[in-house]
Design a protein around this nucleic acid. Structure first.
Lengths: 343, 343
DNA sequence: CTGATCAAGTTATACGAATAACCAACTTAC
DNA sequence: GTAAGTTGGTTATTCGTATAACTTGATCAG
């Protein structure tokens, strides 16, 4: 009945312990408390130990109908700068609930995505975390219709599934508040996209900036708001523009860290320096950049890990679709100083 | 015999097509060519389509003994700066051979690692890619003994399993050659670790630099070789030191990109600029940094993706353990200029 | 006309674990 | 003394697929 193999089965364990396969299963899954005598129990456990038995997840899943796997589909996330943070959060949360992550990066190729979904359906994943590389509004592939799905770092256009994404507006508000609290009143902003663009990041961050100023009783001057595209060069050019205005801002809120890097360079090129001549706040907390700028960049962190954890939680809780903006927190470094009190 | 469920089985497909379950299996796996009549075949395929049948990977794996999964264990790789590049390469290569990646990041926690290995053994992975965050010599966990393993971005101390890692020496050689070919003869190097440190990266890069100079008939002056720890500040300080020597180098090979960034800043602080006053070559091709420096940094790229592909290939080919240094290629940007011919 | 070959399937079983249902031997209660 | 319970297990079956072994009716060579 039992046979020798490189990976022993419960039958082999049972044979060695002198019990039935069912008993081995009962012991290993600790079913019904003391249905098995202590002596037998330890004989079984000894046999398990000696043979190096390891349960076969496939047989277990087949029988139980639970795969214990969660799918993670991303478009290029795995190779994006902030990279595995989403994956990391998902994995940790999945792990805590005894699940395992089956991840596929689709590199934005539709065929790869289709194949990935196919594969995940075959593996009967409990649910799928659908992660986007950047915050956007997207359509969940129809192939995922039959299976619990949560969108992370993006929003589902149709609202059929839950979405978890950064609260950009609050992040922008937080950044601006920080500058206001330092006493600044002439606060510029360099946004990361055209006013016509519909990406949530730029729209939200700008809106938050506006609300903070409005609440502080400061009117937002169009002259102090510039539009770049989130790259270093634009940060450089637009900061120089701002600093050449009649009334220079004493602080600039940059829509992302790369723009802020450009701002640092622009200040330098003008013989100025953050934070003494102009305070700077960034956005993204890019960990290969923000800490290494001189001075370190005060910026707003995107909550990748929390978003991912939340996504997995939502997946496992199987609740109704909800929208979940996640708070972005401020990371203090050295690029903000108190405004000089005008003499 | 067949019953309705959300995920139909082969029995249900068989019932609908009016054939036996075995026939469905034969059709779907295309066994033995024309064992099944075309008409029957298409009836089956129609039924598959109509019911939305998807094979159960668990049953399949249980029956066949092949899991179709490859384990990917990493220590913090998923959240490292170069991030998912290793994962990406592994995934692509695994995918091509019909396999799927089961990845776990252990965050350097031994218990997590043990649990991860346990899980992978349960899922009967075909093999494990054991990835390191940085190039080092490591010991493969003994728990992996029974299962094909390949170490990537590191070297197995015992040499019991294959290792795939960057050819640091050749990379250093390539960097130095590039400067030599531009006519430089006074070439400084800022290494990224102490002379006593035994990390392969610093040792190899320095050795390559030395070989290139030796081959060019230039003696390496200790004065031109400095030792930092791979951080921006050290790049800054040591570059200033080098540039304050009696005979300044006309080019500096920095052991990594962050050091090179520091070098840029140092030059700037001295009123100098790359590449006119001093050429710079980095190492790592850090994609959030090298392209954005001004001028863009000429550097040596670490072949993450190729290493990962190679690792998976080795895993699947089940060959004897081998050591596999992978070539690091030069990425040209704007930080190297021809040496000025002395008047 | 008959035995052999072949096309096109079907039947039965195994993979490894979980679990419902059953059972034997002892206690215990009255 | 016997019905009822308890203890400590066992047996049989199931999950969904792959495949070896068998069947059946037709075709064909000699």
């Amino acid at each position: 009945m039992a046979r020798k193999s490189n990976t022993p089965t419960m039958w082999e364990v049972a044979e060695r312990a002198g019990v039935s396969q069912a008993t081995v299963s009962l012991v290993l899954n600790n079913v019904g408390g003391s249905r098995v005598a202590e002596a037998t129990k330890s004989r079984v456990l000894d046999a398990v130990e000696e043979l190096g038995f390891r349960t076969n997840a496939f047989a277990k899943s087949l029988r139980s109908g639970k795969s214990g796997m969660i799918g993670f589909i991303s478009d290029e996330v795995a190779s994006a700068p902030f990279a595995g943070k989403l994956l990391k959060g998902s994995q940790l949360c999945a792990w805590e609930s005894g699940n395992v992550i089956l991840s596929v990066d689709t590199f934005n190729e539709p065929e790869l995505e289709a194949a990935a979904i196919d594969m995940m359906l075959s593996y009967r994943v409990q649910g799928v975390v659908y992660a986007s590389m950047y915050h956007r509004v997207l359509d969940v592939p129809t192939a995922l219709a039959g299976i619990p799905t949560v969108v992370v770092n993006a929003q589902d256009r149709a609202g059929l599934v839950s979405s978890v994404f950064p609260d950009e507006e609050l992040g922008g508000y937080t950044a601006a508040r920080h500058l206001l609290e330092a006493g600044h009143t002439r606060i510029g902003m360099i946004n990361i996209q055209d006013p016509e663009s519909d990406l949530p990041a730029g729209i939200g961050r700008l809106a938050g900036y506006r609300r903070a100023l409005r609440e502080a009783g400061i009117e937002t001057t169009p002259r102090l708001i510039r539009y770049g595209s989130g790259i270093v060069e634009d940060g450089f050019d637009l900061t120089r523009e701002l600093m050449n205005e009649d009334e220079r801002p004493t602080a600039i809120f940059c829509g992302n860290d790369r723009t802020a890097w450009g701002a640092y360079r622009a200040l330098e090129s003008l013989g100025l320096r953050a934070p003494d001549d102009c305070s700077i706040v960034g956005f993204d907390n890019q960990d290969t950049l923000a800490p290494y700028l001189d001075p370190g960049l005060t910026t707003v962190a995107l909550p990748y890990e929390q978003m991912a954890r939340r996504a997995v939680e939502l997946l496992l809780s199987a609740e109704k679709p909800t929208q979940n903006p996640i708070e972005c927190s401020l990371v203090l470094r050295g690029s903000v100083a108190s405004a000089k009190v005008p003499a």
